[in-house]
């Protein structure tokens, strides 16, 4: 394998691994469920993309032709990650999970749970 390919693969693997680790670290570290939602949906998406790009380049080199199968997983995860996050947020709201004490707009949570329009319009629309 030529050196430049190996360097590209190593760099994207390292980026991917670092972001996956940060995503999971955020999952443990952040204080409430609504904040925890952010870190796996975003950091992990980039992390998995890094690993997939590395895998794509490696398999292309291995097979001798341009293999872009792995893009399929990336695309699938990019489409499903926000949907899964949205469903988990809905579940958390449905179960009346408490949010962090100094969250702004906490009075909205009951309204969001009942899927009503907000009673009080925002300050400067």
């Amino acid at each position: 394998m030529p050196l430049y390919l190996e360097i590209i693969i190593c760099v994207s693997l390292l980026i991917g691994g670092a972001f996956l680790l940060i995503g999971s670290y955020g999952l443990v570290r952040l204080p409430d469920i609504y904040m925890r939602l952010h870190s796996p949906t975003k950091a992990s998406t980039l992390g998995i993309t890094g690993v997939l790009v590395a895998s794509m380049i490696f398999q292309s080199h291995l097979k001798g032709f341009f293999s872009i199968q792995e893009l399929l997983i990336t695309l699938f995860l990019l489409i499903t990650a926000p949907v899964a996050a949205n469903m988990i947020a809905k579940t958390a709201l449905h179960q009346r999970t408490k949010s962090l004490k100094d969250t702004k707009g906490q009075d909205l949570m009951e309204t969001i749970r009942d899927r009503e329009a907000p009673t009080k319009p925002p300050q400067n629309p």
């Binding site: 952010h38 926000p82 949205n86 947020a89």
Partner: peptide, 12 residues
């Protein structure tokens, strides 16, 4: 949901 710092939670 995919862009900076925001996750959509619900639609009225």
């Amino acid at each position: 949901s995919l862009t900076p710092g925001t996750v959509s939670a619900e639609v009225s």
